[in-house]
């Protein structure tokens, strides 16, 4: 049986067709895991969050009534799992880990090492955002959602989303300001 749309897939799950659960998982696993990983910054934690999300999804799929799109509903589940997840531990010196890993790779050019450092610092700056700002940033840049779509997922107005993204951008600009100066010097 070829399942052509989310609606049919969800209906099949609601009827208890076991193959449909696997199909649903395959359709959404990358979205769920990507949000979890970008939110937590840690692969093991992301696996926990993704697992929680799918267990919650499978056990409550009979309650999905189609008031919103299924994609919005699954986004809500993963966002809630992220926000509920209590960080089990703080990574010690994550930047040092990332930078050392890049330095250990023999043959890397200076530009590649600097690029790795920039990546690590951007991820660290995102990790330090408040949860509500971080999740808005991730829905925007990982999933490419519009302000209206983010608003529907988070249950707030598009204006609130715009405000959170603006605050997040300003915080990130502030934290990454020194890198811009250095990059500018290199380019000059």
């Amino acid at each position: 049986m070829v399942i052509e749309s989310d609606r049919e897939l969800v209906a099949a799950c609601q009827r208890g067709e076991t193959e449909a659960f696997r199909e649903l998982f395959e359709s959404y696993k990358d979205k769920v895991y990507s949000i979890a990983l970008r939110y937590s910054g840690d692969r093991a934690v992301a696996m926990d969050i993704a697992q929680d999300t799918f267990l919650k999804l499978f056990s409550s799929i009979r309650d999905f009534r189609g008031d919103s799109s299924f994609e919005t509903w699954i986004y809500r589940l993963v966002v809630n799992s992220c926000l509920d997840h209590k960080r089990k531990y703080w990574r010690l010196m994550p930047l040092a880990d990332e930078i050392l890993a890049s330095l250990r790779s023999s043959g890397d050019s200076l530009a590649e090492v600097l690029r790795a450092e920039l990546s690590a610092r951007i991820r660290s700056a995102v990790d330090r955002l408040a949860p509500d700002l971080r999740i808005a940033i991730i829905l925007r840049y990982t999933e490419g959602l519009s302000y209206a779509e983010i608003a529907e997922v988070l249950g707030c107005s598009a204006g609130t989303v715009a405000s959170r993204l603006n605050r997040a951008h300003k915080a990130l600009e502030r934290r990454l300001a020194h890198l811009a100066g250095r990059n500018g010097g290199e380019n000059a």
């Binding site: 998982f25 696993k29 990358d30 696996m47 697992q51 920039l118 990454l176 890198l179």
Partner: peptide, 28 residues
């Protein structure tokens, strides 16, 4: 300070989607 466009490009690159590990289904 990086301008907004540069920051948005960097964020889009750093926060890009990734593939879920194969073992996720077994864990679930």
């Amino acid at each position: 300070m990086p301008d907004r466009l540069d920051l948005e490009l960097e964020l889009a690159e750093e926060l890009c989607p990734v593939a879920a590990p194969h073992e996720l289904w077994e864990r679930i």
